[in-house]
Design a protein around this nucleic acid. Structure first.
Length: 605
DNA sequence: GTAGGGTTAG
């Protein structure tokens, strides 16, 4: 039935002008008819027509009809809350149902204060709220991060002795999660007799939004074990996010598989999460291919791709994607510019980076944040423009933070400028930096200058301040298991085999022309000791282990906690050529792809 | 008789 014919129908049901002629038209609209008519309204105009006819027929004395009338106007996407209010206020004896509807309508319009006023009015008029009253109010609390109000509502529910159902429980979980009270969200969740997909989705989402990634994956596992395997997109996005942050590439890939099997037409949010997961797991090409095949891209997708390309040192491509984004008519924001500037910094595109910075300020009118300045200092510093970087820090309109000074410090280390390095370190000290690497870098700079007394002074300072140097470590995934190697640590159960492999590798490396760069070992020890120390860097142990335990030609993927040293870099380039392996290493700042004796960073990092 | 929950990404 078309809309017009429905509207005509109401006219047919009315008594004709000359009612004496035919009495059979003297019918009345039944309740169900009026409900179906209200449901079919598609605009305020149609609604007003139906409303007028209902008034004529005297149908509004019935609470069922007036409830539906208010619901239609308050909850539809064409309705108006003002109009709904005016109808609502004409109801002499409003019941719980109509109050619930009005509360929901206000909550939908984000008029949270109005929703709460109505809720309190219910109490004043002695109208008891029920399970249908609470989800909208709790959602309002969640949206406003109003924990106190949320807890107050929870208290009311408790006091009323209401036997809460699964809908209210799910809303409580979400409210507590959004307000950052994860333990309360868990308490509600654990007390539930019957958990639905929405309950799992709420609790997993709550953990994800607080960055509790391990718990997120554990809950996902539990959800599957309890037979609730039909996860939906939103849940899987949280899971993907957890995989990305934890580096669980295998689970991430499985989640992708699960999405492909169970969900038709993956949406833009899922695709963006997938790109982020692949790119941050080192599979840039996979991320790129999803990106290129996306039916619709948004600000988020572009940002993920640009930052991803940046992380992999593909600066020019990042700039190309950025131009594409602008051509699509999208307006760049501060986050995407962080990606763009870091792309320039990782690829040494100084001129382009400076141009982008100006464009951001003057064309797109974005005030640079400390992150943008951080990228710029990094860009100049890495390129050896130390004085320019230092001048920029001094002329910044915002207070430089530890990240900015740290960028300058590492640049000073890379370009051997002890004087400026000392200034950067001093500023880090003033900012009460507890980051061990700040001390280690300065101490290594003194060591390089053979200033052993200063080295000792820094080391003592570290001990006094209780700052411990984190040892370098590398993770490598072999046959679905992650193996951890710590620099200089020979406690791995297969240590003997690894040593043998390293010895074998050494012969081949020497034959190809590699010689260890002992200048990287900044300790006051002899050359032989330095060579031994270099050999036991965690990345080399991980490579040796992977070469033993993976099949010929298969790629090796390593994640390490510190920036790669130049000896490990040269070493890995040779290994990629000798053993014909693609080796991907993610360090603290970026990715390096080694293949056929070269690295994707073109030795600029 | 009418109605409600979880919505995720840079």
């Amino acid at each position: 039935m078309t809309r017009t014919s429905v509207l005509n129908q109401i006219h047919l049901l009315l008594p004709p002008k000359d009612s004496s002629k035919s009495t059979e038209f003297n019918l009345r609209l039944k309740d169900q008819d009026c409900l179906s008519l209200l449901k079919r309204c598609k605009s305020m105009e149609e609604f007003k027509q139906v409303h007028a006819q209902m008034l004529k027929l005297g149908l509004l004395c019935d609470s069922f009809c007036s409830n539906n009338l208010v619901a239609s106007c308050a909850l539809s996407n064409w309705g108006s809350m003002d109009y709904a209010c005016s109808i609502f206020r004409q109801i002499e004896d409003p019941d719980t149902f109509v109050f619930n509807t009005m509360i929901r309508g206000h909550a939908k319009d984000a008029s949270f204060e109005e929703a709460f006023l109505l809720y309190y009015e219910m109490f004043d008029r002695g109208i008891e709220p029920d399970n249908f009253t609470y989800p909208a109010l709790l959602k309002a609390c969640a949206r406003r991060w109003a924990l106190e109000k949320g807890m107050q509502i929870h208290g009311h529910i408790f006091k009323l002795g209401l036997e809460v159902d699964v809908f209210v429980q799910n809303s409580l979980i979400s409210m507590y999660g959004k307000c950052g009270k994860i333990e309360l969200a868990c308490a509600v969740f654990e007390l539930m007799n019957q958990k639905t997909v929405a309950s799992w989705s709420a609790i997993i989402g709550a953990h994800a939004s607080l960055g509790l990634w391990c718990e997120c994956l554990m809950l996902f596992g539990e959800m599957n074990r309890e037979g609730c395997w039909r996860a939906e997109e939103s849940t899987l996005v949280s899971v993907l996010s957890a995989c990305t942050h934890l580096g669980s590439f295998d689970l991430g890939r499985c989640t992708h598989g699960s999405l492909l099997r169970n969900i038709s037409g993956i949406n833009v949010i899922v695709e963006t999460s997938l790109i982020d997961m692949y790119v941050k797991s080192g599979c840039l090409e996979k991320g790129l291919s999803i990106f290129q095949n996306m039916a619709k891209k948004n600000q988020f997708s572009y940002t993920v791709m640009i930052s991803g390309l940046a992380m992999h040192g593909r600066g020019r491509e990042a700039l190309r994607v950025f131009s594409e984004m602008l051509e699509e008519g999208m307006v760049p924001d501060d986050v995407v510019y962080v990606g763009v500037l870091s792309a320039c910094s990782h690829a040494g595109l100084v001129k382009e980076g400076l141009q982008c910075f100006d464009r951001m300020k003057y064309e797109h009118r974005i005030d640079p944040t400390i992150q943008h300045y951080g990228c710029l200092v990094d860009l100049m510093g890495q390129a050896g423009m130390l004085n320019e970087a230092s001048e920029l820090i001094n002329s910044m309109p915002i207070e430089p933070n530890d990240v900015v000074w740290r960028s300058l410090l590492s640049a000073c280390k890379a370009h051997h400028n002890l004087e400026l390095g000392e200034i950067a370190a001093k500023n880090l000290g003033q900012l009460k930096s507890q980051n061990p690497s700040d001390y280690v870098i300065l101490s290594n700079m003194y060591a390089r200058a053979q200033r052993w007394e200063d080295v000792a002074r820094i080391r003592t300072e570290m001990v006094d301040k209780g700052i411990e140097q984190k040892p370098g470590c590398s993770l490598v995934e072999v046959k679905r298991k992650v193996h951890k190697f710590v620099s200089q640590d020979m406690s791995h159960p297969q240590c003997h085999g690894i040593q043998e492999m390293i010895h074998q590798m050494e012969w081949q490396l020497k034959f190809e022309g590699y010689s260890p760069d002992t200048s990287q070992v900044l300790l006051d020890v002899d050359e032989e000791e330095k060579r031994e120390r270099l050999k036991a860097h965690s990345q080399k142990l991980a490579i040796a282990f992977a070469l033993i335990h993976t099949s010929r030609g298969s790629p090796i993927r390593i994640a390490r906690n510190l920036r790669m040293c130049s000896d490990c870099h040269t070493y890995t380039k040779y290994i990629s050529m000798i053993y014909e392996r693609e080796i991907t290493v993610r360090d603290r700042y970026r990715f390096h792809h080694f293949k056929n004796g070269t690295c994707s960073c073109s030795d600029y990092w």
